[in-house]
Lab assay of single mutants.
Amino acid sequence: NLYFQGLKYMVPGARVTRGLDWKWRDQDGSPQGEGTVTGELHNGWIDVTWDAGGSNSYRMGAEGKFDLKLAP
């Protein structure tokens, strides 16, 4: 699974964008943008601060869902 392989790169400072299971509307800005991981992966959740200004926790394994992917 590509998403599980990418988890080791989901570290503080990593750049991310919305992924396969995104369901959080425009939390990442409008139009959709990139963000920066600000915390360690914990119980399948990870913290992100978006360039647009907001921050929140997103699923990276929790509930079998992956809200994020590494930015290109």
Rank of each mutant, 00 (worst) to 15 (best):
G33R: 08
G39E: 05
L7A: 09
A14H: 04
Y9I: 07
M60Q: 02
D47M: 14
T17W: 06
W50K: 00
A62W: 13
W22C: 06
E40H: 13
A14F: 04
A14N: 05
Y3C: 15
L68I: 09
K23N: 09
Q5N: 11
Q32W: 11
G19L: 06
L7Q: 09
Y9T: 08
V37E: 00
K23E: 11
W22V: 04
S30P: 09
R25S: 14
V37Q: 02
R15K: 08
Q32T: 10
W45Y: 07
Y58D: 00
G53V: 01
E34T: 13
G61P: 02
D21K: 03
S30C: 15
I46L: 11
G53D: 02
R59Y: 02
R18D: 00
N56T: 04
D67E: 09
G54S: 09
Y9F: 12
N56A: 11
E63L: 08
F4Y: 14
F66C: 10
N56V: 04
A62C: 08
R15C: 04
G13A: 03
G44A: 02
G13F: 06
M60Y: 10
T49L: 13
G29A: 05
T36D: 02
W45A: 01
L2G: 15
N56F: 14
K69E: 12
F4C: 15
A14I: 09
P12A: 11
P31Q: 08
K69A: 14
L41Q: 07
V37I: 14
L20F: 12
S55T: 14
I46M: 07
H42P: 02
R18S: 03
V11L: 09
G35S: 02
L2S: 15
Q32C: 15
P31Y: 08
D26Y: 07
E40F: 14
D51P: 01
L20C: 15
S55G: 08
G35R: 00
D28T: 05
Q5E: 15
W22L: 05
P31H: 08
P72A: 12
L68Q: 01
P72G: 13
R15V: 02
T36L: 06
N56L: 05
R15L: 02
L7W: 11
R15S: 02
W24V: 05
P12C: 15
R25E: 14
N1K: 10
G6R: 10
R18H: 04
L68C: 02
G44L: 03
F66V: 06
V16Q: 00
G64R: 07
K8F: 11
D26T: 08
V37D: 01
T17M: 14
L41M: 10
R18W: 06
V16L: 00
P31R: 07
G44C: 03
N43Q: 10
T38V: 13
N43E: 10
G54Q: 11
I46V: 11
